[in-house]
């Protein structure tokens, strides 16, 4: 594994031992190191909220800011936004990304992502060169009321061709999710947060090309192990693994990291 420079686009402070954001980040980094992970992106607070009020949103982001201050350059933050609170979200985006160290946006299940309410957030994130991670799932058991599908995200991607959008979990039901996002070159498939079902990564690389596939774990709810296995165990060539495990994320983040004085 030492031959790969592995970056994880998807970690949380939830589901990790520790009383404070700092303690939890330390714990994450400790396990990450054991499996050869170099850097982590972290988003959302210690307690989760599906539809956070502006105050809760700020609190979550504050916790992430505290955590990443612990390990500058090793842990990066994405700002958690709620499209149902447009102005508060724009204010958070400015506070945490324009004026702060964060480099991406996390959108979860407050609202379906094809809604017009996302447009100002995506536009502003793109101006700031931040990448946008949108959770998606396609559940045969039924989605949450505001939970986006990969098809919703494909609509959003078509409206914002200049934005870099990450399809979280590749839709969970990845055999369908990958096909839903395939036509949109600005959409990236993230592998994390689901079972390590064999064939996932091979199909993602086959349909989207290795350049559009990103490793992420969804730790602490998931183990780094099960999620890394999707790439390390996949029947794809090493150069493709290198892209999926970190090369692509570094390429996507390079402009905003450069703006923040971090040269890769």
């Amino acid at each position: 594994m030492a031959k790969f420079d592995i970056w994880d686009i998807h970690c949380h402070l939830n589901g990790v031992a520790g009383r404070t954001p700092e303690e939890r980040l330390d714990k994450l980094l400790e396990y990450a190191k054991r499996v050869g992970l170099a850097r982590l992106c972290v988003f959302m607070g210690m307690e989760w909220a599906y539809d956070p009020a502006p105050e809760k949103m700020r609190q979550d982001n504050e916790e992430v800011l505290r955590a990443i201050r612990r390990a500058p350059g090793r842990a990066f933050g994405f700002v958690y936004l709620n499209p149902r609170h447009t102005q508060a979200s724009l204010d958070e985006l400015n506070r945490c990304v324009r004026d702060g160290p964060m480099i991406g946006v996390k959108l979860w299940v407050a609202q379906h992502c094809n809604a017009r309410a996302l447009d100002p957030l995506i536009e502003r994130a793109t101006e700031l060169k931040a990448i946008v991670y949108q959770h998606t799932w396609l559940k045969v058991t039924g989605n949450l009321p505001g939970e986006s599908t990969p098809m919703d995200l494909a609509e959003l991607a078509a409206r914002h061709p200049k934005a870099a959008l990450v399809c979280g979990h590749s839709g969970g039901d990845w055999e369908l999710g990958l096909r839903a996002i395939r036509p949109h070159q600005n959409l990236f498939a993230e592998l994390g947060g689901g079972d390590p079902t064999a064939g996932f990564t091979e199909m993602a690389v086959r349909e989207l090309g290795a350049e559009r596939v990103l490793y992420g774990s969804d730790a602490g709810g998931r183990s780094f192990a099960s999620q890394l296995a999707k790439v390390l165990g996949a029947d794809i060539p090493d150069p493709a693994k290198r892209l999926v495990l970190g090369g692509n994320l570094r390429r996507l983040l390079r402009p905003i990291l450069k703006e923040k004085g971090i040269n890769l």
Partner: peptide
């Protein structure tokens, strides 16, 4: 059904 490496890496993690 699962990538074999998942269980093995859990022992390492």
């Amino acid at each position: 059904l699962f990538y074999f490496e998942s269980a093995l890496l859990k022992l390492q993690e």
